[in-house]
């Protein structure tokens, strides 16, 4: 497994997390505190441009200038490990880092902009921040801390059918950097396993986009929601109770629009949507309203909470042992090589 940092982290705020599901940020902090991750959130950080970028409003050069400022900020704070709560921020910042490191012409032009503005400290020198070494998603951190997660679990989610939505911009853009699976992404499933819960694993349309398509839901609503519906139907066939996300944009698409699309076709989808950080926080006993922020969700989370049972001491010991065994196995190189060859044969619907 690649080297995932647990200190000198700049936890990168996501504008969609901030304004739609702020509980993702408070849950991330809660879980990071429990599993021993050193992080900082900074008010000088703005936003990655993601939504505007993929709506074609931002050009790549402007996005790169904006990104370079954040890299300089991370280095200035001595927190060069940037960790994202949003899949789009993850892909955008990685791409910006690759451009700045590999394209001298653009790098010079970006630095010229900083020169013109008198912001010397923002200038980027080749190697200042590396896409693979320094840019991560919270899911990477959780994955690397599965043993610590297992030790902190207080509630038992094993009676629920849990599915995962990995989305696109974590798995499919910089797929060479992604941990655990491109054809059958399962890093969220593995983190959920660390709480002693088996997910439903593969399902039809597991890899498919949420359908938001950035501009698509706003200007081609039917086109967008048809894709969402494909996925919801498959999830329903698999009797899913909870869908776990790693990106606030997919979260909006499913949580905010599930009832709307259901009404359109006269079907009910009783699926609760949680970000992986919210799921972990709940499993660790965080308060649903003071930490997890379920009051901002459209599909009520309460029906799940009322059926939650505390984890018994015996069960917990068993989980810790199992997770520990699995993590050690995953970390042995030979096994990883074998797993890679197996992955290629996984069937794929989309």
């Amino acid at each position: 497994m690649k080297n995932v940092p647990d200190k000198n982290i700049l936890l990168f705020k996501s504008c969609l997390v901030s304004v739609e599901y702020p509980g993702i940020e408070s849950s991330t902090k809660y879980v990071f505190d429990k599993i021993g991750v050193d992080y900082h959130v900074d008010r000088a950080q703005t936003c990655c441009t993601g939504l505007g970028h993929y709506s074609d409003v931002f050009d790549q050069f402007s996005t790169t200038v904006n990104g370079a400022r954040h890299f300089a900020l991370a280095n200035k704070l001595n927190r060069p490990n940037m960790v994202m709560m949003c899949a789009t921020c993850y892909a955008i910042n990685k791409k910006v880092a690759n451009i700045l490191n590999n394209n001298e012409e653009v790098r010079d032009e970006v630095n010229q902009v900083f020169d013109d503005c008198g912001y010397d400290w923002m200038k980027f020198n080749k190697g200042d921040l590396d896409s693979r070494e320094n840019i991560f998603h919270i899911i990477d951190i959780f994955y690397s801390k599965r043993k610590e997660i297992a030790k902190n679990i207080k509630y038992d989610f094993s009676d629920f059918n849990i599915a995962t939505h990995h989305g696109c911009h974590y798995c499919k853009v910089h797929y060479g950097d992604t941990i655990e699976g491109i054809r059958n992404p399962h890093i969220i499933d593995d983190v959920v396993n660390a709480c002693g819960v088996e997910t439903i694993g593969w399902y039809d349309f597991k890899r498919t986009t949420c359908g938001s398509g950035f501009s698509q839901r706003f200007v081609h609503k039917k086109h967008s929601l048809t894709v969402t519906l494909d996925k919801l139907k498959s999830l329903k066939e698999n009797k899913t109770n909870i869908l776990i996300h790693l990106c606030p944009n997919c979260h909006v698409q499913f949580d905010r629009y599930q009832t709307y699309v259901g009404d359109k076709i006269g079907e009910e989808f009783n699926i609760v949507h949680l970000n992986i950080a919210q799921f972990l926080a709940l499993a660790m006993g965080a308060d649903p309203y003071d930490v997890v922020g379920i009051q901002t969700h459209t599909v009520p989370v309460e029906p799940i909470l009322k059926d939650l049972k505390p984890l018994s001491k015996d069960n917990k010991d068993e989980i810790i042992e199992k997770v520990s065994y699995k993590v050690d196995l995953d970390e042995s190189e030979d096994f990883n090589m074998e797993a890679d060859t197996v992955k290629v044969e996984v069937n794929e619907t989309n």
């Binding site: 504008c15 939504l51 505007g52 074609d56 501009s215 706003f218």
Partner: peptide, 21 residues
């Protein structure tokens, strides 16, 4: 016509430093 509906992303960035719908 494709961009006009989304110019708000740019305005919001220039005025408030973040995106948002």
């Amino acid at each position: 016509d494709h961009l006009i509906p989304f110019l708000g992303f740019g305005d919001s960035f220039l005025n408030h430093g973040i995106g948002g719908i």
